[in-house]
Design a protein around this nucleic acid. Sequence first.
DNA 1: AACTCGGTCAACCGCCCAAAA
DNA 2: ATTTTGGGCGGTTGACCGAGT
Length: 264
Amino acid sequence: MGRKPCCSKEGLNRGAWSAIEDQILIDYIKTNGEGKWGNIPKKAGLKRCGKSCRLRWLNYLRPDIKRGNISQEEEDLIIRLHKLLGNRWSLIAGRIPGRTDNEIKNYWNSTLGKKVKAEQAKQSKDELEKGKIQPLAETPQSTALRTKASKCSTCLVTQEAYKAEIINADLVHEARLESPKSGGTVLSTTSEEAHSVNSALEFDIGELLASDISESEFWNYCQVNKNSMEEGESSGVARNMWLSSDQHLQFSEEMLTDWIRDDI
DNA sequence: AACTCGGTCAACCGCCCAAAA
DNA sequence: ATTTTGGGCGGTTGACCGAGT
């Protein structure tokens, strides 16, 4: 039963790839194409496991990989996408041509993450000094949303789950709502409880990310959601939507008026 | 010159899940 | 229906390098 193992790990090379190994892999893929990584070591005569071949090709040898420093535009995009998607490096990389998930992850961990953190700290400090904002712990909004996203390429997000995420404090683990127009995701969640909620209306995040839905479609979703709210809940949802969309969505005044009447 | 330290990045690890058998 | 694997992912490691002392 099951599949045969792709390769034995014994007797395989590890560590840095040599130029000769690189050339063997390039030649093989030029002739046979990508995929079937498990077969490559045997067929190409490489003493590497299939996983290692795949990684080497995708992160280094692929012809469409962009070399050189990350530009300012790319950096801005990475920051925006990270804000939207969290540590979902492959998704971020998918939207930055020529850059690999590994490269972006490394860049974030070594440079960008610290930079963003420092800027945020400075911004908070400035605003605090100007009296624009209350200290975080005292701000009622600070508990509204946590925006850490996690791996959810296959997770299903339900309307009910979304409600649960936003409204029920016990279930608010991670939720986000962003504009597809801004190049981000619509909604993601990792709440186990929320996942277990049944609903007829399900959204596959992977599909949504790939489908590039329009803002009006997105807004329709919000309207449907809103209409299913109990009295008194919609304002809370609206607030959270507003908070989460503040920097990314360009909702019109009319759109928002109905939602944020009392709560902000 | 020798050493330490911190940053960078390629490569590996371990997990998850869809697909194959 | 069940077991097993391959592929894909994010997290982590460790080699390497340059700056500072």
